[in-house]
Simulated assay, not measured.
Amino acid sequence: MANSNDDTRKANQRDHEYEGNPLLAGISSHYITFASPEEAHKETYLSRAQQVKRYLTADITTRWADLVLIVCFALSGLIDSGAYNAYECFTSMMANPNAQTGNTIFAALGVSNLPVSVPRYAWTKSVCSIVAFLLGALLTSNFHRVFGERKRWVLAASFAVQAAMIAISAHLVQLGRSSGSPVKDPSLTGFPADPGFPWLDLVPISMLSFQAAGKVVASRVLQYNALPSVVLTTLYNDLMSDPGLLTGGLTGNVGRNRRLGGLLFYVGGAVAGGAFVRSSAGFSGLLWTAAALKLVVILAWLLWREEAEQEDGEDA
């Protein structure tokens, strides 16, 4: 009887040792579980899809994100200088110290057919730019608000729309469907002939103004108030009003450095835009370059560290 109890105890101990060991699972059918290759592949696929979803829906950290916004200042200067040269209106709130304020004045004067030196209906460009910018700000801000202000995919999608609109504008200019740079052929009297108002110019003007609003919204959701994207007048004022403008060394005044960096990058982009327009690449080449640089910004958002990683590093 004692031997029987010992045998039973040893058998139970042996089965316990086999539990969870896939190499010995065949010893005890109680612990055998089989999964078909299709089910195993499905589980692996779902696991990877969940990882990708989690990665794309994570909030990015705002740390060092000001560097991307400063690059956006350069892109604004690049696009705005070329657009004003081509269409004689502003396409961005960052385009000029007065930007959409200037467009508002142009539109108001257009009611009285002023200034007399500009073509008839020229005011419609300014109106179109204002409406497109307002619509871009409305839709982009609500897009961020609904789907997540700082989620990776939301920021990437917003800038992807901006890149697409710039690329479409570049295509129209390249095909000659948009004026690019206004040129009037001489008439028989030797004076420039009136080619009529280029209504198709309103398409790229609208697209460039719409996408410009996305950069303004990005500066707000990333909470970098030291980089005001509304008008450069604010940036000039905040920079010169900073009590630590001449103190703090090179790295001791971060707000001053951001404002100064944004200003310098904007001016540099505007100078580059003028050089582009005068070169063989022209306005279309300028826009294609801007669209390509937007893709670099999209890649930056997709690779940016998430907020949780920053917090873990600070806790450590």
Rank of each mutant, 00 (worst) to 15 (best):
V203K: 09
S219Y: 09
K215F: 03
L208M: 01
K151D: 08
L235C: 10
P182R: 13
A170G: 03
N237W: 15
G214E: 01
S209F: 01
P228S: 15
L155W: 02
D242K: 11
V217L: 04
V221E: 07
S179T: 10
I205C: 01
A160D: 06
P204F: 06
V221G: 07
L172M: 14
I166G: 03
K184Y: 11
D185W: 10
Q211K: 02
L227T: 03
N225M: 14
T233I: 09
S206Y: 06
W199Y: 09
S169C: 00
W199K: 04
V183K: 07
D242T: 08
Y224W: 15
M207N: 02
G252V: 04
Q162T: 10
D194A: 08
F210S: 00
D194L: 14
A167T: 04
A226S: 15
N253S: 04
T189S: 15
V221C: 11
L245W: 13
P243Q: 06
P182W: 13
K215V: 00
P243F: 05
A160C: 10
V216G: 12
R220V: 14
D201H: 07
L208G: 00
P198V: 02
S219F: 06
A167N: 02
V183P: 00
L222T: 14
D185T: 14
A212L: 00
A193E: 14
